[in-house]
Computed example of a mutant assay.
Amino acid sequence: MRAFACVIALLVLCVGARGDDILAMPTANMLDRGQMEFAYYHVDLPAPHGGPENIEAQVLYAGLTDYIELYAQRIAIDKDVTSVVLNGDLRLMKETPTTPQMVIGCRNIGATPTTNNPPFGTINYRARSANQSYYFCTYRTFYLKDAGQPPFIKLHACVGTSDWTLGLQRRHDGLFGGIQALITPYLGVVALYDGADSITGVAIAPGPPGLAIRAGMFSDSFYVGVAYRWGGMW
C-alpha cells in the first residue's frame, strides 16, 4: 500500500509557482488557449516483500481553447501496469471581480484500467479503476494587496463522483477542495483534501519563465518533480 500512497503523492499534489496548477485532483484551474505544460515526476520506493521499487509519471496539458482543456497522464509503476489516462475540463464561467470560476470535467475519458491488482473480497480494483468520474469545481481568488498580483489565496470547492484511478482508493466522491496560495511570483503552497486524504505541497519557480520545481507530502509519502509551461502554440 505504501507504493500506492507514493503514486498519489506523485499525482495529486503539484503546485505551479504561478499558483494555478494542481495535478490530478480536480479543481477549476485551467490553462488558457494555446498554453501547454509538461511535467515529469520520479520516486524511488523501498521494496518490502517484492513490492514496487520505483514510479515514474509524465503529464501533458493542453489548453485547446479558453474554455476546453485536455490532459493526458502516463503512470509507470514498477511491477504493475503502465497506463495512460485522458482527462478533460470545460469552463462554464471565467472568474471576474464579482463572479467565481466554474468548471465541469471528466477523468478517465477512455475508461482505461490503471492497475493489475487482483480483486479483494467484493472489490474488483481493475474494473473500478476503468470507470469514468465526473465533477463540478469552482474557485474564488482573494488578493492580499494589488489585484492580479501575489500574494493571493484561492479557495477551491468541488463535488464529484467516485474516482478509483489513483491507488486502489476511492477519491473525489462528494465534497473536496482546499486552499492554494501564491506567496511571491516564485513561491506557491497548497493545502487540500481530495475526499480521502489531506495533501500539502510547495513549488518554486527559479527561472527561466515557465519552469517550476515541485515537492509535497501525501500522508507520509514524499515526491519531487519538475514542470515546464509555454504558450502561444495556437
Rank of each mutant, 00 (worst) to 15 (best):
I8F: 02
L13K: 06
C14I: 13
A17W: 08
D20S: 13
I22N: 12
A28D: 05
D32H: 13
G34V: 08
M36Q: 15
F38H: 11
F38R: 09
A39S: 13
A39Q: 15
Y40C: 03
A47G: 10
P48Y: 13
H49S: 15
G50P: 09
G50K: 08
L60I: 09
A62N: 06
G63F: 05
G63I: 06
T65F: 01
L70Y: 13
Q73P: 03
Q73Y: 09
R74A: 09
A76D: 11
A76E: 05
I77N: 05
D78G: 04
K79F: 02
K79W: 07
D80V: 04
T82S: 14
S83Y: 02
V84G: 03
L92V: 06
T96A: 15
T96D: 15
T98D: 15
P100Y: 07
Q101A: 15
G110W: 09
A111D: 07
T112N: 13
T112P: 01
P119C: 07
T122S: 09
R126I: 02
A127L: 10
A130H: 00
N131A: 00
C137G: 14
T138W: 12
T141E: 07
F142G: 01
L144N: 07
K145F: 03
D146C: 06
A147P: 07
G148W: 13
G148P: 11
P151C: 04
F152N: 10
F152D: 08
H156K: 06
G160S: 02
T161C: 01
W164H: 00
W164D: 02
T165A: 12
G167I: 05
D173G: 00
I179H: 01
Q180I: 04
A181G: 08
L182F: 02
I183H: 12
T184V: 07
T184H: 11
L187H: 07
G188K: 00
G188S: 13
V189C: 10
Y193E: 00
Y193V: 01
D197A: 03
S198R: 10
V202P: 02
A203T: 04
I204L: 12
A205H: 05
P206Y: 08
P208Y: 01
P208D: 01
P209R: 05
S219Y: 03
D220H: 14
D220M: 06
S221V: 02
F222P: 02
F222L: 11
F222Q: 04
F222G: 02
Y223E: 04
Y228R: 05
R229F: 03
G231W: 00
